[in-house]
Design a protein around this nucleic acid. Sequence first.
DNA 1: TTGACTAATGTCAGCGACTGACATACCATG
DNA 2: CATGGTATGTCAGTCGCTGACATTAGTCAA
Lengths: 236, 236
Amino acid sequence: MPVAAKSARMRYGWRMSSVSPRSPETPTSSVPAARRARKKSKTRADLLAAGTALFASRGFDETTTNDIAEAADVSQRTLFRHFATKEALLYGDMDEALDELRAGLAGRPSGEPVFTSLRRSLVGLAGNFEAHREGRLLQARLAAEYPSVSAYSRATVQLSWERAIIEGLAERLGEDPMLDPRPEIIAGATMSAVRIATRQWVASGGRADFVALVDAAMAVIPHLGELDLEMVRDSP
Amino acid sequence: MPVAAKSARMRYGWRMSSVSPRSPETPTSSVPAARRARKKSKTRADLLAAGTALFASRGFDETTTNDIAEAADVSQRTLFRHFATKEALLYGDMDEALDELRAGLAGRPSGEPVFTSLRRSLVGLAGNFEAHREGRLLQARLAAEYPSVSAYSRATVQLSWERAIIEGLAERLGEDPMLDPRPEIIAGATMSAVRIATRQWVASGGRADFVALVDAAMAVIPHLGELDLEMVRDSP
DNA sequence: TTGACTAATGTCAGCGACTGACATACCATG
DNA sequence: CATGGTATGTCAGTCGCTGACATTAGTCAA
């Protein structure tokens, strides 16, 4: 029961391309010259599995990178060749989610209203969360307990989503995101919506409907302007 | 010229209350029993000054915490008693900005429209930036160059502002921020506006009018709803 | 003034994330 | 099979950061 961990680390975490395990072509035959890639993928997958298991049972700070490497039967050095940081290892399966988000945004029909496109794209993210419920819940719980995990989530994982949204929206709007502030502003509001939805989803133990939660939070964005007229809070 | 630093560290950074240097009561007399506090403040100030100077001349990763401690003529252990992390030392003068933001929000008249309150409160932040131009520019430049600094800025500094805004808005709206998503959504959009404004301000070398920049970015928030109707981007 | 009390600092040993350098094993390819 | 490149192992080292304990020095009451 590490009391909100008094310490922890974090580095950024980008780079490291190495394609995710994915389906190795076809179980057999086809392209026989891929053993090397398959072994590499396996090493990565082993590390991911070992890390997840240890983090879940012991906690984040309580697990050393050496523990993980040994559990995966590789050297610590190999671990750090696959993952830039300990945190990156915890979020090692997040690339797919990013891809789905990007693809979702890019795939929306041209004439569709912006917020509709955004909401529909987030369905992809939501689906990914439900498809990896246990892993996502673990990540969320560790982020709630360990500051370094929380920081990594915000500064790396969520930032990558935000950037994907900014680029996707700018593309749809046909504007340069460095000149038109709207994509970035919308992305900021959207990330808040995603955090709200995630928090509620985690609180429900992953049983709530993620899509509905995101939609509910997203729904308030277009109505923010109405608040500008309200003269709230007359002291009772 | 560290090429976007290949490595760096970060921990969270909260805790550590120790009041900022502020005015030590009165130059003389008054409360003579405060030498201890003054010395502590001086140590902190020395560390801050040493850190700033070294970071500016050598870079962030290129400066060790030991370098800073020695430059300030204290032990490394003392440095870490004053600042939880190396990054927290770089942002050691940011508390004032947070206080101004909080106070600004709390001090706005009750009947004032929400966005007006927010914009006026951000004037405090802007003023703080202009009052500490060199320091803020250094922080921004280091954040652009070193991932660990950027991560800390996002995950700690900006998060504290965001929380202040959420709490301030919830208070004004008389709502529980855990039930009403609007404060958090607005805060997310606002933080994007602040980042946009900061980026432009830094690009201008700190010469642009920060208040005007924030206002310009904030101005689009109430009009986000209009985007929902647009059917943009008909391929040319 | 003196003598406890305690807050601030120093010292030291150590943990653990991460890295560079070099060696080795192994798959790929002509 | 020879050649080459890539994934991995080994090892030593850096650096941020921490716990434990000793020391210094304001503080405050008698």
